[in-house]
Amino acid sequence: MSITPPEQKVWYNEPVEKTEVIWVLIALTWALIMFAMMPLWHLKGTQNMSNEAYRIQPDVYQARVDAFVEKYKVGEEGHAKTPVVRPPAGSDVYLLARLWEWYPVLELEKGKSYRLHLSSIDWQHGFSVQPANINLQVHPGIDEVVTITPTDAGDFGIICNEYCGIGHHTMLGKIRVVAGK
């Protein structure tokens, strides 16, 4: 029921005004342009990170992270004494998401490439690097591998942007990028 009913009961047989036809054609044209741009942005855009994904058992991933930390640990940070690791350029780098932390702190070299492995051992988490605006989903049982090359030195915060429980707001991590030697 409308507020003001149409003058003619069979309103769909009424002729359409020229301005209305023009607006419908503009909307249709824009929709077709956006539809064509989606695959183009995906294939040619620089916003898409190259990645791989593999199935992995959470306990196997935890063992890889522990071995990685033991091999490349250079210190500790914070009241929780989170290990800081400095892997060599070009190596595989492991970052673990678990309630409610990112483990370990990564120290990477500016301008060097790394294969960053991301996985969770408990729930789904969101990997968001600020202020770089990188956002990925991190799932248990999936080893998400992303090739990264830091372009700016400094500390970059990692936050979980997928609600993961009562301590979600405390799930913070860090990637430190240092200038080349």
Rank of each mutant, 00 (worst) to 15 (best):
Q47K: 13
S119W: 02
S2P: 08
H117D: 06
L108A: 05
W100N: 09
I56L: 14
H168W: 15
M38F: 14
V129C: 03
F35R: 15
I33L: 05
C164R: 11
L43Y: 14
P83D: 02
P58D: 05
V65D: 04
L136R: 10
P83I: 00
H117I: 01
L118R: 13
D143G: 11
V84I: 14
E107L: 01
V177F: 14
G90S: 07
I121M: 09
R98Y: 08
D155A: 13
V69R: 05
V21C: 02
A80F: 15
V145T: 05
N135W: 12
M38Y: 14
L172R: 13
K112D: 04
W23P: 02
A67E: 15
R115Q: 14
L25G: 15
N51P: 00
P104R: 05
K9I: 09
P87Q: 12
V93C: 01
N48K: 08
W102P: 05
V21Q: 10
V146R: 01
A67F: 07
L108S: 07
H117R: 03
S91Y: 10
E52R: 10
L96Q: 12
K112N: 02
G180N: 13
G90I: 11
L99W: 02
D122E: 10
I56G: 12
L32G: 07
P6V: 03
T29F: 15
K81A: 13
L116N: 01
A53Y: 12
R176T: 12
V60W: 07
G78E: 03
